[in-house]
Design a protein around this nucleic acid. Structure first.
Lengths: 151, 151
DNA sequence: GTTTTTCCCTATCGGGGTAATAGGGATTGA
DNA sequence: TCAATCCCTATTACCCCGATAGGGAAAAAC
């Protein structure tokens, strides 16, 4: 799972948007609050608008709002909008992989890995992250001390 | 999760090795059985040896064997040896990410995602895949029909 | 209706990784 | 000594990533 800088920034910008409730927030505020590279994030915001995750408002007193309530936008949706599919194997979707001989059952492993990822990223919303109350099964995953150790 | 061609090939080559039991198998056999690009895979085999996942035997009648029993080598180990860490966020390990303000709890999500991945890839061995008997929790993940649908 | 603010578009940049091949050198068993 | 096999170093083409520059377009305020 390689979360690009772009996707990481996108999630953070949207969390900041969510924190400002229903208000229209200008990009400068979002960028400063999260300390991100201005010009780069500007292009990300355009991508997020094209993916219908945020709405833009031009002119003086313009800015951005979430396209839907924070509880209806998952982290997975944002990552997918920016980075593409959550899981790929040599450029293919896990379910498209075809294997023979000794590798016959390999696709099942990739599909299981993707399903495990989805269970975390698609079931965690901006609202969950914002107020720190993650879904129980996600909390349990991150709660184990060994989950924080490198391998 | 981006599994590179290199890592995919590596797993397949090692599955093929596992299928030949304790015998020394020459690269040609592995490559032909899985229909892979010869020269490319030759470099992968060197990487696998350096990672101490296979042992090489030179000279006529040379070839490769697994460095350990197939039940003691996980898919996760192979992927890590070739592609590096299972999960990274803008080049950092999930547990190294630091966030402020609205994003304070974001690291927990990334860590949970990594833990979910580990639970599949580190607990599935070459032997599991070879004989098609995946661990129960992995089987349950891949068993759900929706796990095979794109999103 | 002009001005100001803000979003928005296109182009560009260097660096680094990915997939793959070429060509031959080193090693070992027979 | 011979032949098979592994092993090493380069090199290729290509694309993506992170980031910046510079200005154009829209809309609200006055």
């Amino acid at each position: 799972m390689q979360i690009s800088a772009k996707a990481d920034y996108a999630v953070r910008v949207m969390l900041e948007l969510a924190a400002h409730g229903p208000d229209v927030v200008k990009s400068t505020i979002l960028i400063d609050h999260q300390d991100l590279p201005r010009k780069f994030v500007e292009t990300i915001l355009v991508d997020l608008r094209r993916a219908d995750l945020v709405r833009s408002h031009r002119g003086a007193d313009g800015g951005y709002t979430l396209a839907r309530p924070a509880s209806a936008i998952s982290i997975g949706q944002i990552v997918r909008a920016i980075d593409g599919p959550l899981a790929e194997v040599r450029g293919l979707r896990p379910h498209e992989c075809e294997y023979t001989n000794a590798a016959e059952h390999l696709a099942e492993v990739w599909v299981a890995a993707r399903a495990a990822l989805r269970k975390v990223l698609d079931e965690t919303s901006l609202a969950h992250v914002l107020n720190g109350k993650l879904p129980v099964h996600v909390r349990r995953m991150a709660g184990s001390p060994e989950a924080w150790l490198p391998r």
